[in-house]
Amino acid sequence: VAPAPVPAPPTVLVMLPWPGAPGTPGAAAQREANRRHLAHAVAAAGDKVVVCLGPGRGGVWPLVPSTAARSAERLAYALELYDQVWERQVCAGKRAMRVSVIGVIRAPTYLDAKPVVAAIGDATALHVLTPRPPSRARERQARALQLALPALRDVTVSQLREGISDAAPAEFLRSVRFLDDPRSLRRRVPSIVFGGTFDRLHSGHKRLLTAAAVLATRDIHIGLADDALLSSKRLGERIQPYDQRAEALRGFFAQLRPRARVHIFRLSDPFGPAATSKDLDAILVTSENLHMAAKINSRRSASDLRELEVFSLGRSHEDSLSSTALRAEGV
């Protein structure tokens, strides 16, 4: 008996709350949450993702509203979303995926609005990610959408998680200083800690190192993963030796900030001294590792230690140049 055909992955429609203009309260946290939602959408989708800018503080606006200021803000964010989706496409090996970023005018007509219908097009299966729990109104809209698109046979609706990960809920996000917020860039701390493999030091790594050099006024602590922690990494046998990676870090700081007090220590577990040291003030993580910062502060709190101030650096196009890819290419 021939096996049943495996259904193709669905088109994903992800409804993202409008975060507000950069610098407004809560905007940076919502932008980071939206970044995570996009990553989930790209991972779940087949050959198409439709990003719909929906409700947020101040009401629901179309992508190109009537006022010039709002139009500029939303257009800039739409362009940013295209960049973020492309980053995730590259990382997921889905460069050919089709992407649309659209806006809506009124919340009750999301799913059957003309821009949505046009963007979904000839999809046969659709998965909708929405900020609010599935409701009867959403079910009615889904049925209306199926009537408008005869090829669409299956529509599922689920709620976006409030936090950016199970271990980094929205409550934690409100305490994070996101470095795409200009106010966070003005903050300084005596000492900062961060960790990584830093194999084949590339531009994505250097963004992180540069941020640390700017934020810390006194000490920079770097946890450099040792061999025991790297045993499960892809192409781990090609990772540069510990001493070579440590020397590359020292060499970069010699160019960037020669008088910086840089302390490099072996990282043999995911937490290291960050969870136990009394001499640290802050931790710097990339956006995809915010959950680790939350876990570290949870451990510190359980040990009656002061929680670390958390700084987060979002991904860039340079971060798509991964050490894994360089190892695979033999660079």
Rank of each mutant, 00 (worst) to 15 (best):
297 N>G: 05
236 G>W: 06
144 A>G: 10
87 E>M: 15
196 G>H: 07
319 D>M: 05
163 G>P: 00
283 I>C: 08
62 P>R: 08
96 A>I: 11
168 A>G: 13
327 R>C: 05
307 E>D: 13
168 A>F: 12
323 S>Y: 05
109 T>I: 04
293 A>D: 06
135 S>M: 02
3 P>Y: 11
46 G>F: 05
286 T>N: 09
88 R>F: 12
184 S>Y: 01
108 P>T: 02
100 S>P: 03
173 L>T: 10
275 A>P: 01
309 E>M: 10
129 L>S: 02
105 I>D: 15
57 R>Y: 10
71 S>A: 15
22 P>I: 06
287 S>L: 13
299 R>I: 07
267 L>P: 00
161 R>C: 08
8 A>V: 11
195 G>D: 08
124 T>P: 04
4 A>E: 13
310 V>W: 01
239 I>M: 07
80 E>W: 14
198 F>Y: 04
312 S>T: 12
88 R>C: 12
219 D>K: 15
255 Q>G: 10
121 G>K: 03
12 V>N: 03
300 R>M: 05
26 G>R: 04
28 A>N: 07
268 S>A: 10
85 V>T: 07
159 Q>F: 04
306 R>E: 15
68 A>P: 10
307 E>I: 09
80 E>D: 15
192 I>C: 07
297 N>I: 02
277 S>M: 02
281 D>Q: 11
116 V>M: 03
79 L>H: 14
37 H>V: 10
137 A>F: 06
19 P>D: 07
294 A>H: 03
240 Q>P: 00
260 A>D: 06
78 A>V: 04
301 S>Y: 04
13 L>M: 09
237 E>D: 15
113 A>Y: 07
325 A>S: 10
218 R>G: 13
246 A>E: 15
53 L>T: 05
89 Q>Y: 03
291 H>L: 04
120 I>P: 04
30 Q>V: 09
273 P>C: 14
293 A>P: 08
106 R>S: 15
133 P>V: 10
271 F>V: 10
280 L>D: 06
21 A>R: 13
75 L>C: 11
258 P>R: 08
204 G>N: 01
71 S>Y: 01
288 E>K: 08
50 V>T: 04
147 L>D: 14
163 G>N: 08
297 N>S: 02
195 G>Q: 06
11 T>D: 00
58 G>I: 09
12 V>R: 06
102 I>T: 05
42 V>L: 02
33 A>T: 14
249 L>D: 09
318 E>R: 10
159 Q>H: 01
323 S>G: 03
68 A>R: 13
113 A>R: 03
276 T>G: 10
183 R>M: 05
171 E>A: 15
95 R>F: 08
214 V>S: 09
241 P>S: 11
318 E>S: 14
19 P>R: 06
23 G>H: 02
181 D>L: 03
279 D>G: 11
158 S>A: 12
12 V>C: 05
125 A>I: 08
180 D>Y: 00
3 P>T: 12
102 I>D: 07
260 A>G: 07
114 K>F: 00
251 G>K: 02
207 R>G: 11
199 D>Y: 06
228 A>F: 00
51 V>M: 02
170 A>Q: 13
38 L>F: 01
242 Y>H: 11
179 L>R: 02
9 P>L: 07
42 V>S: 05
84 Q>T: 14
139 E>S: 13
47 D>I: 06
197 T>H: 04
72 A>H: 08
318 E>N: 13
225 A>E: 13
292 M>C: 11
212 A>V: 04
207 R>P: 00
